[in-house]
Design a protein around this nucleic acid. Structure first.
Lengths: 152, 152
DNA sequence: TATTGTTATACTCTATAACTATA
DNA sequence: TATAGTTATAGAGTATAACAATA
């Protein structure tokens, strides 16, 4: 350790830390979910579908903050693996109601155990206060994007 | 607001929030830096070079958590815009010492003002405690990746 | 033999435009 | 005319393999 290199001194640079942290978490989460045939985005989608039975694809896309076209392959993947169903909506024949299957519930449950371990691994060093602050801070920041979407 | 859709109930799902927050911050930061002909990654690189005069490209790549091949275009871009120099290292003719130029210093200074405003915009809702916790939490999480890199 | 910087390349994630079938 | 889902496509960002020059 001859030289000491830093990336802290300058100013806020939250974006830098956020990018690094997000990257690291995503890589670890990807490894964690691989045995369950899930990716971070399909896992998030499956979780949201489990919470919101019958939601439409455009609603899921909004919650995931991705565009509708990109959601299609995600839903395809989950449906292809038998984890969710696309049910026809009788009142609107354009739309699909997304529902988790029995297999999907089991898969999600199993994956959640692994994800808990992953989170303990990554966030275990943090104090309870830090973890709570992190959680609410991230939600607050992400929430802003919704509001902005409304305005401009 | 007929239905209430959620993505909170299930479990930790920090990855989900982190991904959304990171995405939002990156988008806003990109817009913020555009007038300065900087991207998030070139801005981070420029900041780090300013802090660590003469560092090598592989060291910068490590700090940015990207692979060396991808750094080349970043350094090309900064050099092409006259913001940094690639100085030959006399003791090792393979390597380049990266140094910020006068123009680069000015550009960075100007950009930093805009970035401060950006951070106030995005993190202004947080309490001082939350902001501090967020910062140290993100650093702690990102730091883990370094240690892991050493082990396996 | 290992390392620094580089080139070429491929893969993932995401965004935009335009289509279809319904409403 | 607008909306839900879809297709095709393009652009970032990133990773891997292999090379030249040097250590």
């Amino acid at each position: 350790m001859e030289e000491r290199l830093t990336a802290n001194g300058l100013s806020g640079l939250q974006g830098y830390h956020l990018r690094r942290a997000s990257k690291h978490v995503q890589e670890d989460l990807a490894r964690t979910l691989e045995p369950f045939d899930l990716r971070m985005i399909t896992f998030s989608a499956l979780s949201i579908i489990a919470e919101n039975d019958g939601l439409r694809q455009f609603q899921l896309a909004e919650l995931l903050t991705i565009e509708r076209p990109n959601l299609v392959v995600i839903v395809d993947e989950l449906e292809g693996n038998g984890l969710i169903r696309r049910d026809q909506v009788k009142t609107d024949r354009r739309a699909y109601a997304l529902r988790i299957t029995k297999v999907g519930k089991k898969r999600l449950e199993d994956a959640l155990h692994a994800v808990e371990a992953h989170e303990k691994r990554l966030f275990g060093d943090l104090s309870d206060e830090e973890r709570q602050a992190l959680k609410s801070a991230l939600k607050s920041i992400a929430q802003n994007s919704r509001e902005e979407g409304d305005h401009g």
